[in-house]
């Protein structure tokens, strides 16, 4: 199983160059059954990453480009009247897929965003009184332009809590940039990727994540991190219990991608940024990342008293 995971990561890395850590995090997020938010400027390979992930894990893949005139129905689907049968027939929206790439989610109006995010949370869609479950697994990889860009509706904090992780790819290194320029089109490469894991294998890996051991010392560490985020005076509001569970699951998945069946504090420290930063607002006013770093520095890994 660990081989499969490692191979998947390698495969995605062959398309998205020089971003091993982000890829491993993205895979961990998937394995922990979490939704992923990628925040970056346009053209940084967000779409490529999402597509590659879908290919490698042999997932159904759909991409929706969000715009400001988009309606909830454009994502969830509509009921269409069939004159022949004189009945309404549901016409599924793009949400009925295993991996949905929601591109530039912050271009849509809050109403449309809300519709998607609700579907993410409930893993089901209700159309005209008919509730239908979404496929399993169901992942949303949403991309978002940095909030400062004009013509956007930033996701409110309450919605952000629904994404397990937020990643940022960033510019490639000079070496990788050269490779990128020399190589062929990345998107095309992603489309041509061969699946590494079957759907069954993915399900199995996700089940493995839950079996990764978290010791009492480790859970205590996570608890102290959560407590400090609430009381430490670093953030406007501390991490929610949902975030706490997410942190533990993400750490488990990260440990598994590293080939371990138990979690060590380093796992927690690695995933804390992606899991927590988008949910927190620094009290001092600076970047949440700085405050999160401060959180890590303030909470002893090993209980002191």
């Amino acid at each position: 199983m660990q081989d499969v995971i490692r191979q998947s990561i390698t495969a995605v890395s062959s398309v998205v160059l020089g971003k091993e850590e982000q890829i491993r995090l993205a895979v961990s997020c998937l394995l922990a059954r979490g939704h992923l938010l990628i925040e970056d400027l346009p053209g940084m390979g967000k779409t490529t990453l999402a597509h590659a992930l879908a290919r490698v894990f042999s997932l159904d893949y759909r991409r929706v480009q969000f715009t400001s005139d988009m309606l909830p129905a454009d994502i969830l689907g509509v009921s269409i009247f069939n004159p022949q049968t004189r009945e309404f027939e549901p016409k599924d929206g793009p949400v009925f897929t295993q991996l949905l790439l929601a591109d530039e989610i912050n271009r849509a109006t809050p109403k449309t965003q809300g519709a998607l995010l609700e579907a993410m949370e409930e893993r089901q869609v209700t159309l005209d009184g008919l509730t239908r479950a979404l496929p399993d697994p169901f992942f949303v990889v949403a991309t978002q332009n940095p909030v400062t860009q004009s013509g956007t509706f930033p996701l409110p904090e309450s919605q952000l809590d629904r994404f397990l992780m937020r990643l940022s790819l960033g510019y490639p290194s000079a070496e990788m940039e050269l490779k990128l320029l020399a190589g062929s089109d990345r998107r095309q490469l992603a489309v041509n990727l061969k699946p590494v894991a079957s759907g069954e294998q993915l399900q199995h890996a996700m089940a493995e994540v839950r079996k990764v051991r978290a010791s009492r010392d480790l859970i205590d560490y996570i608890q102290r991190l959560l407590a400090y985020s609430r009381n430490g005076g670093l953030f406007v509001a501390g991490l929610s219990p949902r975030a706490g569970i997410g942190l533990l699951n993400a750490s488990r998945a990260w440990a598994l991608t590293g080939g371990r069946d138990y979690v060590i504090p380093e796992d927690v420290q690695v995933v804390l940024g992606p899991v927590a930063e988008h949910r927190l607002q620094s009290l001092a006013g600076g970047a949440a990342a700085t405050a999160t770093q401060k959180l890590l520095e303030s909470v002893p890994v090993v209980r002191r008293q």
Binding site: L71, A73, D74, V78, S79, I80, F81, P83, F88
Partner: peptide, 10 residues
């Protein structure tokens, strides 16, 4: 198509 009011057709 999405803007069609199917209910009035019915």
């Amino acid at each position: 198509l999405r803007a069609i009011n199917w209910k009035s057709l019915a």
